[in-house]
Design a protein around this nucleic acid. Structure first.
Length: 361
DNA sequence: AACTCGTGGCC
DNA sequence: TGGCCAAGAGT
């Protein structure tokens, strides 16, 4: 006997009314009671930031972005470079580039207002099936099936779906569609995600407090943690290369902008060997800028990307050179504002620590 | 369908 | 410690 849809949505919404998390981008219960809809711009911005990213990591970035760019027109007026600088550290940088493209499209093609249907939203850059459904449901009350990782887990358990992901995505979406109510679809979606984040967790789910425990087939089977079943993952290879931290007499660091495609596209880095996901680079100073300088070995840093681990040998030297077209000297006060991904911050910290260590020694 | 694309927190 | 995985999208 499968759980009845009306019972699931009613119990879940009642639970949400008591346990909803208060988040910057949500409207509170009082506003919802008065029929005040959340701002589609803020819903969109939060949903893009939350793609594969935790609530805790997003909070400060969301506050910074909405203070700096309070509406979609302001964001469209900003440069991609400034958006990448503000996004630095949050990861998945194609999201930031698509954010700019999407803001431009909303202004140019939709008169500065987000379209109000999942179908139209789906056509915008950086908005896929999940984000289109989430914006449509939360901001526009469309009963779209909102399926993220939380919902996949909740629904796979509720119906004891043992088909491994990603093959299970289609049946899970269909089940979610049957559960989604015509009334309060946005609250239903957010309730499913809150439930997955706080009760129906990947490890040690708190089934004793779950509003859906009566109908849950995974709990009935005695092992809710077994769901969702996932296909085995591939091994993560180690790649190697070298990074070169060159400073001049003013203490400025030589930086450069990465190309427009691939890993960390458009972001800032110190000069490095040509490491990528498929080929190692040299781990010595053979590819360093200003090769005649005295390069000091500062040791290595390690950084884990989604599908490979990168170990970079860090070298440091002092000297002057004329930056080429995509390079510049970044003064000490400017470095914090550069679009430096975390892996490059590790490189700079390693070079700096090594310098202070030498001074002590 | 399979692969690329970041980062941080958790146990 | 290292594997897991988090409000996925694009190709």
């Amino acid at each position: 006997m499968i759980p009845a849809p009306e019972s699931v949505s009613a119990r879940l919404l009642a639970w949400y009314d008591r346990h909803a998390r208060e988040l910057l981008w949500r409207t509170g219960p009082a506003e919802r009671a008065r029929g005040i809809r959340p701002d589609p711009y803020r819903v969109w911005l939060s949903e893009v930031m939350l793609q594969q990213t935790t609530v805790a990591a997003v909070k400060d970035y969301f506050a910074k972005f909405t203070a700096k760019w309070p509406d979609v027109a302001a964001l469209a007026a900003a440069s991609e470079e400034d958006i990448l600088k503000a996004w630095a550290g949050l990861g998945y940088y194609s999201r930031a580039r698509n954010l700019k493209k999407c803001a431009d499209a909303v202004v140019a093609e939709h008169g500065g207002n987000f379209p109000g249907t999942a179908n139209a939203l789906r056509a915008l850059p950086g908005i896929g099936d999940y984000t289109a459904a989430a914006i449509a449901a939360i901001a526009f009350d469309e009963p779209a099936a909102v399926v993220d990782g939380n919902v996949e887990r909740v629904v796979a358990r509720l119906f004891a779906i043992d088909t491994p992901l990603p093959a299970a995505k289609k049946p899970i979406r269909e089940r979610t569609g049957t559960l989604t109510p015509q009334d309060r679809p946005g609250d239903f979606a957010q309730a499913m995600m809150d439930l997955g984040a706080t009760v129906c967790t990947p490890k040690r789910p708190a089934c004793i407090t779950c509003p859906l425990r009566d109908g849950c087939l995974a709990l009935k089977a005695g092992d809710p943690e077994r769901f969702p079943v996932r296909a085995p993952k591939r091994a993560r290879p180690v790649r190697r290369g070298a990074a070169y931290v060159l400073t001049n007499d003013d203490g400025a660091v030589l930086l450069e902008r990465r190309g427009p495609d691939g890993l960390l596209a458009g972001m800032t880095q110190v000069p490095t060997t040509g490491w990528n996901a498929r080929a190692d680079g040299a781990t010595d100073t053979s590819e360093a800028p200003l090769p005649q300088a005295h390069w000091t070995d500062c040791g290595a840093i390690s950084h884990v990307f989604t599908h490979f681990e990168l170990r970079l040998s860090v070298f440091r030297a002092e000297g002057e050179l004329e930056p080429d077209a995509h390079q510049w000297w970044s003064e000490p006060d400017a470095i914090a504002g550069e679009a430096l991904p975390t892996v490059m911050k590790k490189v700079l910290v390693r070079a700096l620590q090594h310098e202070s260590g030498n001074e002590r020694g």
